Computed example of a mutant assay.
Amino acid sequence: MAKKPKLSKNQQRQIAQNRDKRIRDSAHNKSNDNDLLGEAIDGRVISRFGKQAIVETLTERNIHKCYIRRTIKSVVCGDKVIFRPSLSKEDRDRGIIEAVMDRQSTLSRPDYYDGIKPIAANIDQIIVVSSIVPTLSTHIIDRYIVACEHAEIKPTLVINKVELLTDDELSQVITDLEIYKQIGYHLILVSCKTRKGLPELSNILKDKVNVLVGQSGVGKSSIINQLLPDSDEVVGEVSNNSGLGQHTTTAAKLIPFDLGGELIDSPGVREFGLWHLPVQDITEGFVEFREYLGACKFSDCKHKHDPGCLITQAVKNGDIDSRRYESYIKIVDSLDQNRPSYIKE
Rank of each mutant, 00 (worst) to 15 (best):
I68Y: 04
D91E: 15
I82T: 09
D93H: 13
R61T: 10
V75H: 03
E60N: 11
H64M: 07
S88T: 13
T57S: 09
F83R: 02
K65I: 02
D91H: 14
K80I: 11
S88F: 12
D79V: 12
T59E: 02
V75R: 02
E60V: 08
D93K: 13
S86K: 03
R69P: 00
F83M: 00
T71D: 14
K65L: 06
R61L: 14
D79Y: 11
T59A: 06
R92K: 15
D91T: 11
I82F: 04
R61N: 15
R92Y: 15
F83I: 03
G78N: 12
I63H: 08
V75F: 07
T57D: 01
V76F: 00
S88M: 14
R84Y: 09
R84S: 05
K65C: 05
F83T: 04
H64N: 15
T71Q: 11
K73T: 10
H64G: 07
K65R: 08
K65H: 04
T59M: 04
H64F: 09
V81F: 07
K65T: 07
S74K: 09
R69C: 00
I72T: 10
S88H: 13
V76T: 06
H64V: 08
V75K: 03
S86M: 04
L58N: 12
K73D: 15
N62H: 15
E60Y: 13
C66K: 02
E90R: 13
T57I: 01
C66S: 00
I82P: 01
V75W: 06
T71F: 12
L87D: 03
V76S: 02
D93V: 10
R84P: 06
K89H: 14
D93Y: 08
I72R: 00
I68G: 00
K65E: 05
V81R: 01
R84V: 02
T71G: 03
R70Q: 09
R92P: 08
T57W: 13
